[in-house]
């Protein structure tokens, strides 16, 4: 059977719009792919999807009705993993749900559901890690600034946590890998992109107090250790080495 490749803009709305087109046009053998990952193919048909929030909403409402808030949340989490080709797994789950008209989200006997669920779990773990490991530094103009390099696109997921928590300070969390960030300006949180040349990470944009608090925190971390109980295997299990870059207390 001829495959039809649907090329979308990488946004969640774009993905849902692709699903809409699949049903609208009765496409039988679709492949969904992000524009940024698409290389022209010699065979098969190609369809460029334009994000349409109306279409997206209709699909999303349909999904939510079947998978319930909990299941649709998992689907969104899995989407944010940005794993190559995962769109097609998600589509198969959606198709399975539409066909059976059931909430299939915990039917782990189905390999697509299982793979969605595993991916969502990984994303969720990354979300929690970022909520835990983000470290703000206060800049001279009074903004608490943190940059992150998460494995998955978790900024949309951690937004509400930080907005609720730090309501009386300005802050920025910037994803260096995906080149965008969240900025809370004491009223609301907005998506921003910064022209980050190297000097944003230059030490002298931060207050002099900043260094003091980092030192106190490092000291504190050292004091909490109980020599007699050291268990490094367990330690690394909780904080895998790739996360140490966030944690000032782990720097010499």
């Amino acid at each position: 059977m001829q495959a039809t490749t649907l090329v979308y803009d990488g946004s969640f709305d774009g993905f849902l719009s692709s699903i809409f087109e699949i049903y609208e046009q009765r496409i039988t053998n679709p492949i969904i792919i992000k524009k940024s990952e698409f290389q022209n193919q010699l065979f098969g048909e190609q369809l460029n999807i334009i994000s349409n929030s109306n279409h997206a909403k209709r699909v999303w409402d349909g999904i939510k009705k079947l998978l319930k808030p909990n299941g649709s949340k998992l689907l969104y989490y899995a989407f944010l993993s940005e794993i190559y080709g995962l769109e097609n797994t998600l589509f198969k789950v959606i198709k399975y749900a539409f066909e059976t008209q059931k909430n299939v989200i915990s039917d782990f006997g189905n390999s697509h559901v299982l793979s969605l669920s595993k991916t969502a779990k990984k994303v969720s773990r990354e979300k929690h890690r970022m909520e835990a490991f983000v470290r703000f530094q206060q800049t001279k103009d009074g903004i608490y600034f943190a940059n992150i390099l998460p494995d998955f696109n978790v900024l949309p997921l951690i937004n509400s946590h930080f907005t609720k928590r730090y309501a009386d300070q300005k802050w920025i969390i910037y994803d260096l890998k995906r080149k965008y960030g969240l900025f809370y300006n004491l009223v609301k949180t907005e998506v921003i992109t910064l022209d980050l040349n190297n000097n944003i990470l230059n030490e002298d944009i931060f207050t002099s107090e900043e260094h003091h608090y980092e030192t106190l925190w490092k000291d504190y971390f050292k004091s909490t250790n109980i020599e007699e109980r050291v268990n490094n295997a367990l330690h690394v299990k909780h904080v895998p080495k790739r996360y140490w870059k966030y944690l000032s207390e782990k720097h010499p």
């Binding site: 929690h128 909520e131 835990a132 490991f133 971390f221 909490t224 250790n225 109980i226 109980r229 050291v230 268990n231 490094n232 367990l234 330690h235 299990k237 909780h238 904080v239 944690l247 207390e249 782990k250």
Partner: peptide, 10 residues
Amino acid sequence: ICHTYTQDGR
């Protein structure tokens, strides 16, 4: 939330 872990994994 655990913001970090001690060397003995606490």
